[in-house]
Amino acid sequence: MSEFLSYFRQDRLPHIWCPGCGHGTVTGALVRAIDRLGLDKNKVCVVSGIGCSSRAVGYLDFDTLHTAHGRALAFATGIKMARPDLKVIVMTGDGDCTAIGGNHFIHAARRNIGITTIVMNNETYGMTSGQFSPMTPKGMLGTTAPYGNVERSFDLCELAKAAGATYVGRSTSYHVPLLIDLIEKALQNDGFSVVEAVTQCPTYLGRKNKLGDAVQLLNWIKDQAVNVKAAAVMPKEKLEGKFLIGELHNGPAPEYSAEYGELIARVQRSFENVKGGLWECASNSD
């Protein structure tokens, strides 16, 4: 059997996702990136929240944690602080990450903690039957937007960059080789990395908006994606209604758990010459 499958809990497959749902494609891309880097399986921990997308961890044969809605990054932060030697990966959905989990997201980015976050953006709440999310484009239909979504949507990559993430990229479940490359680079970045994978939910987003089956939905996504290198030479009006794919930001900065570790070591050193050491000092202080 293929080596690729060794990263899966095969007794859990086939997975629960609908026919043509892009979440499987993104999960496959992650596994391929991990395989390329030859990461030690026992040094990888994958964490998720709640949503169709968040079910990905149940199929992956690493140490995995399926947590509470929006809280994957909070749990992942704890893991990274306790075990900075682990490669910590978060798999999350647009709702999980940018609505209920939005605060965790911006602060994880601000701290530049060494977590690779993969956002499976299907522009809707798939699991709860197609309510609009903060990433549903304006005007689109959803269970909670029967006459069209009035809200403006986030550009998650811009948000991540502004909040302090040190590696940011976007691809789609159509552009899989690019997606694998971006995840591979994101995993190598020592800091907070975000890869947004625009993907298809044929069951809710597709059906509610009469966008057709999985293939038609993928075509619709493909037509909106413009590579950042091509966009650089395109006139602005041609980029209307499009989104950029490719590496969008790469600006290394000191990683949080390492800096925290250094702080601890420094404080411990400063107590070395004190009689009784750090413990004595701490117990005697008011």
């Binding site: 690729f4 499958l5 899966f8 497959l13 086939p14 997975h15 996702w17 043509g20 749902c21 892009g22 979440h23 499987g24 494609t25 496959g28 891309a29 391929r32 479940s173 159509y174 899989v176 080789p177 694998i180 993928l218």
Partner: peptide, 8 residues
């Protein structure tokens, strides 16, 4: 192979 959502 790369796009198949079901590793099939």
């Amino acid at each position: 192979e790369l796009r198949c959502p079901d590793f099939a």
